[in-house]
Design a protein around this nucleic acid. Sequence first.
DNA 1: TTGTTTTAATTAACGCGCTAATTATATGCA
DNA 2: TGCATATAATTAGCGCGTTAATTAAAACAA
Lengths: 142, 142
Amino acid sequence: MLPENTRRSLPMALLHAREAVMARFRPMLAAHDVTEQQWRVLRVLSEAGPVEATELAERASVLPPSLTRIIKALEGRKFITRNKAEGDGRRVVLTIAPAGSALIDALSPERRVIYDDIEQRFGHEKLEQLLDLLESLIGGEN
Amino acid sequence: MLPENTRRSLPMALLHAREAVMARFRPMLAAHDVTEQQWRVLRVLSEAGPVEATELAERASVLPPSLTRIIKALEGRKFITRNKAEGDGRRVVLTIAPAGSALIDALSPERRVIYDDIEQRFGHEKLEQLLDLLESLIGGEN
DNA sequence: TTGTTTTAATTAACGCGCTAATTATATGCA
DNA sequence: TGCATATAATTAGCGCGTTAATTAAAACAA
């Protein structure tokens, strides 16, 4: 059945929910001149070490064309370094640089506070339920 | 607590979920050369009649600058008409045009099929649960 | 080895999200 | 009435999403 009102439309609800959550994180990122996507890329590089572009794009949920732009920006600010893979001149390997690690460290506490606040307001139980449902929706070939 | 792995990160999960759902609708919209946001605007105008720009932006979940661009595009294709509000020269009133209504009618059956398919695969019960949780997350000043 | 096919990354083109600034019209106040 | 303030819409500027096209390098085949 089609959703009669817009609020019960799944795409709309997901959009609003994401908007509501990101509104909490955006000021923090803006204060450090980092976009949401740049932040995701940095986090993946911080947690996973040197990674090839294709894998990085997947893990950070960014499309390849966007990643190219993000790499340029982050490299320009010395947050990451970019090298060709040895043995395959097509592949590119990205590595986090000291300035990048420093930014991660600087923002993590704030990030934790925001995340905790959301979890507390929304409820731990409900958050787990929501994450389970979302995971199922994503993974289930829906 | 911070989410250890990316899959249990709420912003990421919402992003992926929305992406998974929209992937189903996108081909339909692309086939008719309508963007997702243009489609939302058309639907609101179709369901709510003539509406002022500010209200339209809210109901379609589109930012005012985006709405300006969308109006231009839709007006150019004769899907909507744009007039000044009588009594207040600042306000703009949008109305759906016959071609716009025709597009809505043409796409609605397809839309229903896709939505039904998602609901069937995911499960009616789970969909309702998910919508409830999302609604709570959005509305709860979280 | 040479030519074809495949793969990785980039570029191109267009629209939207987002913030900030600007324009135009209304409203409020002295 | 005249001026300051407030409001609605638009414009500007930048980055990302998305699809398609392009470039460069590797793998494969004759």
